[in-house]
């Protein structure tokens, strides 16, 4: 159902090779892949001429900020003497009490807190004949219905764009709600159930 592209064809799609650079036996596959890509990315993207300038201003501001040390990750080591734990445990007990206490009903909406560090990724699956495709993984509690992929026009290519926290994520595609399959373009590991999960390390 899915088709793994040859690595050289992937380089062609990335613009690192030209069609004429491919060996003759890969040219038909390269042409097919280019046609497929054309059918997906037909809308041109127009970037503002001021974009470069804005990006560089933001980068320079970040590089020269005197408060940068506040947001840089550092290892923090804490040495604790047992007797000093008593006040901390008392505070923890108070916290446990507050947390376990039933919350008062509220009509206020819940604020959405953005993850401190996250990365946007695009997942793509070539799945001929599929009626629906979703992705389930450690980022959505392995819920096979939570993150559907969208079909690109009338093609057999399904895509999803996700913003995920930095870290390591495992996932698999779910085709037509029943068939689990790893992402053919990502590294995979044993899932402990005799199948493979794909891996995203962000």
């Amino acid at each position: 159902m899915s088709h793994e592209l040859h690595p050289l064809v992937k380089l062609l799609l990335d613009g690192e090779l030209r069609l004429s650079d491919l060996p003759p036996e890969l040219k038909p596959e390269g042409e097919r892949a280019l046609r497929l890509l054309e059918s997906i990315d037909h809308a041109p993207v127009a970037l503002s001429p001021a974009l470069d300038q804005r990006v560089m201003m933001a980068v320079r501001a970040r590089a020269t900020s005197r408060w940068r040390w506040l947001v840089q990750p550092r290892e923090l080591r804490i040495h604790v003497r047992p007797w000093t734990l008593v006040p901390a445990l008392a505070a923890a007990a108070a916290l446990v009490f507050v947390v376990l206490r039933p919350a008062a009903p509220s009509t206020e909406s819940v604020a959405t807190v953005a993850a401190p560090e996250s990365v946007t990724v695009r997942l793509v699956l070539h799945a001929p004949g599929a009626e629906r495709v979703a992705v389930a993984g450690s980022f959505n509690q392995w819920n096979a219905a939570a993150t559907p992929l969208l079909r690109s026009g009338t093609t057999e290519v399904w895509t999803a764009t996700l913003t995920l926290p930095v870290g390591q994520h495992q996932y698999a595609f779910v085709v037509d709600g029943i068939r689990w399959m790893p992402d053919p373009s990502a590294p995979g590991v044993d899932d402990g159930f005799g199948r493979r999960n794909s891996v995203l390390a962000l």
Partner: peptide
């Protein structure tokens, strides 16, 4: 917890 959810979702 994730591994248990994964197994259940996959029908294991």
């Amino acid at each position: 917890v994730q591994k248990a959810l994964e197994g259940a979702a996959k029908g294991v």
